[in-house]
């Protein structure tokens, strides 16, 4: 009797953990340590931005004016919505509601793809306007456009790295759809869903800082 109960209880509990609670806390701490390193990685990119913006403030204001504020704001809203649907998926897993988890993941994938679609549209406009450093760059606007390539290198580097993180996230979520539908994650063990949620929210936070500092500088000058 107690043996049977024990074997049912330990579904999804790895042998090197004593309890679900210990397994869960180890999993989250590991994820947070990974995100701390990710924060330093993006921090390096933001530090580069800060240094060059201090060197060439004019080029950054001029470059920022080449980006469309409504498009960037729309994409910010899409990404915030995707964070909300992600948290709904995690909530579904915590409560053992497999359809909620599945729908939450599916909606997060849709919003993520929508965000990347808008990004492709923006990149194609930059190509059209010859604002892609190294591949297709020629300044047609007023003013000298000196050092503008530095701004656009950072624009593509930072938003590109962010987009790469989103692509990785979307691929992982696509792989999560089937187990989610089959009810793999239970209230006792859904660490994978919640840990992945942490990653997705982190990517959202990176964009929260990218949006104002790429799209919104120099609008009042």
């Amino acid at each position: 009797m107690s043996n049977a109960a024990h074997s049912v209880e330990s579904v999804g509990l790895a042998h090197h953990f004593e309890s679900y609670e210990q397994q869960k806390q180890s999993s989250f701490l590991g994820m947070w340590l990974f995100l701390a390193q990710e924060a330093m990685f993006f921090g390096g990119l933001f530090a580069t931005y800060l240094y060059y913006r201090a060197q060439y403030p004019g080029a950054f204001l001029l470059g920022s004016r080449q980006l469309q504020v409504p498009v960037g704001a729309f994409n910010t809203a899409i990404l915030l919505l995707s964070s909300f649907t992600m948290v709904v998926a995690v909530w579904g897993a915590q409560h053992g509601r497999r359809k909620t988890t599945f729908l939450g993941l599916a909606m997060t994938i849709l919003f993520g793809v929508a965000f990347l679609g808008v990004k492709v549209y923006e990149y194609s406009l930059k190509w059209e306007h010859q604002l892609v450093p190294g591949l297709n760059f020629h300044w047609h606007g007023a003013g000298a456009g000196d050092h503008l390539e530095i701004f656009f290198s950072l624009y593509f580097g930072m938003t590109g790295m962010h987009a790469l993180h989103m692509i990785v996230g979307i691929v992982i979520m696509l792989l999560m759809l089937r187990p989610a539908w089959r009810g793999k994650w239970t209230p006792e063990n859904h660490n994978f869903v919640e840990g992945f949620g942490l990653y997705w929210h982190f990517v959202d936070i990176v964009w929260i800082f990218l949006f104002p500092f790429l799209y919104l500088i120099g609008l009042s000058t």
């Binding site: 989250f28 330093m40 921090g43 948290v87």
Partner: peptide, 27 residues
Amino acid sequence: FFMHVKGSTTAVKITAAGSVLWLAILF
């Protein structure tokens, strides 16, 4: 709220605060 640091373990809170501290040193 979304990442549930409110209500998480002390180890997670320290790690989250640590990332902010390290970034603050950098900047």
